[in-house]
């Protein structure tokens, strides 16, 4: 698998800084598990974080000696990371090991979603969305940054086409009309900045489909 679209540098940086709204950080984390290039970028940015720490003036801290009996953490086993699964590891505890087994909720004919709960004040929302083969979503804008990671199949819009592993960034000033791939449809993980934003999008989609 060759990933063609990686997150932008400013998002890699806020990911390393730990200063990203939670949903966006989740998409970044899932991309990292399948993208060696971005893992390397993240490691580099961690070293930028470490260098910045050197400029902080220290605050006195009294040492507590840990008990020698504190057990060492065992590395996560390789087996655990290589479970046969088409779900990125960070998502498995929410959705299980197989995209096909997700308890999808139908939004409208051809569109299903599965919301992933986040901390209440995360100020962002995270969802899986499944779109049927060849289905076209209505043209829509975004009210904050939206990060989409393709997990299965592919989709395209007026800016390009996106395959498994690709991260698509949509800024608030961008509108697009995505179309799921003819043969496969597509499953994506979508993070939206600001609470309930994606909800708004789905509501608008449903509106267009149902005429409400």
């Amino acid at each position: 698998m060759t990933i063609k679209r990686h997150p932008n540098p400013e998002n890699l940086m806020s990911c390393a800084a730990g200063s990203m709204p939670e949903a966006l950080a989740a998409v970044m984390a899932c991309h990292m598990t399948i993208c060696p290039r971005c893992r390397k970028e993240l490691a580099f940015l961690d070293s930028v974080g470490a260098a910045l720490l050197e400029d902080i003036s220290p605050t006195p801290l009294v040492m507590k000696m840990p008990s020698p009996n504190v057990p060492a953490r065992q590395p996560k086993s390789i087996a655990e990371n290589s479970i046969k699964s088409d779900v990125p590891a960070p998502l498995r505890k929410f959705v299980g090991n197989r995209l096909a087994d997700i308890n999808w909720k139908r939004v409208t004919p051809g569109i299903w979603q599965f919301p992933i709960p986040l901390a209440k004040h995360s100020n962002s929302s995270l969802k899986l969305i499944k779109v049927g083969a060849g289905l076209k979503l209505p043209d829509h804008g975004h009210s904050g940054l939206e990060l989409t990671l393709v997990l299965q199949g592919a989709f395209s819009d007026e800016f390009g086409s996106y395959e498994v592993g690709d991260v698509v960034e949509m800024g608030e000033d961008v509108a697009h009309a995505p179309v799921a791939a003819e043969e496969t449809g597509c499953i994506c993980l979508i993070a939206s900045e600001g609470p309930m934003r994606f909800h708004g999008l789905l509501a608008r989609i449903v509106q267009k489909f149902t005429g409400f």
């Binding site: 730990g18 939670e22 993240l42 986040l118 995360s122």
Partner: peptide, 8 residues
């Protein structure tokens, strides 16, 4: 943030 740490 009482959030899950996504990036391991």
């Amino acid at each position: 943030r009482r959030e899950k740490t996504w990036v391991e």
